Computed example of a mutant assay.
Amino acid sequence: MDEHAGLGARIVQHETDHLGGALYLDRAGLRSLAAKEQTEDRWSTAGLAAAAKQLGFLLP
């Protein structure tokens, strides 16, 4: 059996969960999830360029 740590472990667990029919939301603590209103406030009016900048993506 292989051992994984850090981000690699999270990715392996995530994909293994999919094989078992589980989703991220099945394991996530409710406090770690943003409310719909918080998500809308942050992202609905930001526009593509602002959202990409906040996420660290470079646009052409």
Rank of each mutant, 00 (worst) to 15 (best):
L59S: 04
K36R: 13
R27W: 14
L48Y: 04
L59P: 03
T16A: 08
L55E: 07
A9K: 09
I11Q: 12
G20K: 07
G21P: 03
A50R: 13
T45Y: 12
L58G: 11
A52R: 00
D2F: 15
L19V: 11
G6T: 00
S44W: 07
Q13T: 08
E15L: 14
R10M: 15
L48E: 10
P60F: 07
Y24D: 15
A51D: 00
E3H: 05
P60Q: 12
L23V: 04
R10Q: 13
R42M: 05
A51S: 02
F57M: 03
A46H: 01
G56Y: 01
S44P: 03
T45A: 12
G47Q: 00
S32R: 07
R31M: 06
Q13S: 13
E40L: 13
E15I: 15
A52G: 00
K53D: 07
A9T: 03
T45I: 05
A5Q: 12
A34M: 07
E37C: 05
H14L: 11
A22D: 14
G29K: 15
D41V: 11
T45W: 09
M1A: 10
E40K: 08
A9V: 02
K36N: 09
A5M: 05
A34S: 12
H14Q: 05
A28G: 03
M1E: 10
L33A: 05
I11A: 13
T39H: 11
D17Q: 02
L33I: 05
K53I: 01
A5C: 09
G47S: 00
L19D: 14
A28Q: 08
L7F: 14
A35Y: 12
L7P: 11
A52D: 00
Y24V: 12
Q54A: 13
L23R: 07
A22I: 11
L33M: 08
A5K: 10
D41G: 07
D17M: 01
Q13G: 07
G56N: 01
